[in-house]
Amino acid sequence: MIKANYKAVVIGGSAGSFSVVSKLLSQLREDFPLPVIICLHRLKHVRSGLVESIRLKSKLEVIEPNDKQTIVAGKVYLAPSNYHLFVEYDNTFSLSTEEPLNHSRPSIDNTLSSAAYVYRNKLIGIVLTGANKDGAKGMKDIADKKGLTIIQDPKTCEMDTMPKSVQRLIKPEKVLSPDEISKFLNQLAI
């Protein structure tokens, strides 16, 4: 176990990330001590289905949060379809239907950047496989606030554009395979 003073994990992913997230959540230990905030690109009009599928594998409770819902440790939060998901200073979420960012709503940059400002150096940011650059700026914000940055090893990605665009802006602290990501998270003790 690594004793570390983190407050949240935030994960972004796009093309190919669904199976990675499912696997990750099936591997995370039941008493995982942090909230896990996930923003995945998805088809606009396929609202249901994603959260249900992710729930099937997860040992932790998976929630699509409502506006102003309080963030609780040990729960998994999935950005609802067609909304941007932001983390607020009072440890709640806020939702917005503002215009898409990087052609996406939810946009990973929005979730990652807002979390970076709130949790600062106590945040772990992870960007997974994906076919665009959404998330890169958010990861830079996390790095700027001295949070921990992890990308999925491009060699293990279905689409490596997303982690590689992170590498164009910063040097991520860890480049890990999906199995290594869950192994790393599971040894965190708060």
Binding site: P80, Y83, L95, T97
Partner: peptide, 8 residues
Amino acid sequence: LGSHESLT
């Protein structure tokens, strides 16, 4: 209300 709004 919207699909992800709730009364508090």
